[in-house]
Design a protein around this nucleic acid. Structure first.
Lengths: 237, 237
DNA sequence: CGGAAAGTTGACATTCGTCAATTTGTGTGG
DNA sequence: CCACACAAATTGACGAATGTCAACTTTCCG
């Protein structure tokens, strides 16, 4: 089912009642497919649905007045991308597909219905919002206080653990077909600098990377370089 | 009353029912006073209360493995500092007083009671959490994509508007007695660079600043330099 | 008055960005 | 299957932004 990864994630906070789980599973949504780069939600609009990643990878971004792009969040299957648009409108940022993705669009009215019928579920969703914010805080630390190699190593560590929670890591590698420019906009670096930093990580044999995926070759060393502590992801295992 | 600024802020989302407002006003809390630098909540602990700023200024910060500090949020009166700790524990960051401050500590149990009795209030609190996240996103853009002068100008613009919402701006100036080192840890810059950048802003006569306060001398120009768009603050006026 | 914390300055090193060119990869039409 | 077109990756040279270190000065407070 399309909501399985979401349910698995939400239950890391507290178990859902059978009724709440059933309500989520029955949650009406339109499935839509997007190609890499497609805009899913545009900044300044006030959507009446929220997007749930089913397959692929989706990011949220803002632009500065002079057109520079900064990616402010990256979402994997099971993530509720813009749950906040349920309460906070208009959108202060845009949402786009990082790779070819399938996204479920859930009407806000339905979310309201489910929360009315299952008040306890509210806590789970607040937990998810809070988790999102915690990831954002860690990105702030990375951008403000880590230099390029550690910053990118940190990104790869985070994606490794988040993809693993979604069950999408095999033999240390996971799908990651972002452009080096995308990575630059993620980390607040220029494309050229991203390129050189990736080469350094490769030379140290910490990661392998092609246009489709990233492979973690030496997790411990990568964690050390990044100064990574997975606590903020609130993983179970 | 200590919760007045909070109520005023929450009603920017949607009006509170008289019952909900009364419940907030009657919300039990211990008032505590902190001196500049005092730790209010420590990272890795699991507090059973959340902090509400009554007076002063409070920030949240994380440290990297090698001890560097990054401030990830700054809170003015009326802000619920760590509402997320209601659902997300343990804390992934610490909270400290940026200046001498009075803080109300509200037990999570009481928050749960109020939300049970006034389910609609939940939306207002989710809105507040979402607003917090929106501010964080804007900081990410600043740290990733703006250089020092614009980054600091952006900080001053944001604080100007947030302090104004809290009713704390007079003649373009507001209390701001952070150290230049604090500002560096806010913006992801070194103390020396902060110093030089402030001097540049002064020379352009955009701001005036002493150890206690900031005065905005030329708001329009400052906004232009920062590339500031207040939309993300969801101000009413 | 004394001392510590904060602010300021100069010299210098490093990181990172920009520009422009080149190479590699990838998909499409013939 | 080949040739072309275009996007992405890579490279080198250079300049700009920012960090570091070590002084020195000012402010604040007891």
């Amino acid at each position: 089912m399309t909501v399985d990864p979401l349910i698995r994630k939400l239950e890391q906070f507290q178990p859902l009642s059978p009724g709440a789980r059933a309500a989520l599973e029955a949650m009406p949504s339109r499935l839509r497919e997007y190609q890499k780069g497609d805009l899913i939600v545009e900044a300044d609009t006030s959507p009446d649905e929220s997007a749930l990643v089913v397959t692929g990878c989706v990011f949220r971004f803002k632009r500065t007045a002079d057109g520079d792009r900064q990616i402010v969040a990256l979402h994997v299957p099971g993530d509720f991308v813009d749950l906040h648009s349920f309460v906070l409108k208009p959108m202060d940022h845009s949402v786009a597909a990082a790779v070819a993705s399938i996204v479920a669009r859930v009407p806000h009215g339905k979310i309201a219905d489910i929360l009315r019928d299952h008040p306890h579920l509210t806590r789970n969703l607040m937990w998810d919002m809070a988790l999102d914010a915690a990831i954002g805080r860690e990105w702030m630390v990375a951008m403000g206080r880590r230099q390029a190699p550690a910053r990118m190593a940190h990104l790869f560590c985070e994606m490794y653990f988040r993809m693993r929670r979604a069950g999408l890591v095999k033999d240390g590698s996971f799908e990651f077909s972002l452009t080096q420019q995308d990575v630059g906009d993620l980390c607040g670096l220029s494309t050229v600098h991203v390129n050189r930093t990736i080469q350094a990580l490769r030379k140290k044999e910490l990661i392998a990377m092609d246009s489709k995926s990233v492979t973690i070759l030496a997790l411990e060393e990568l964690i050390g370089l990044a100064g990574f502590d997975p606590a903020y992801l609130h993983l179970l295992e």
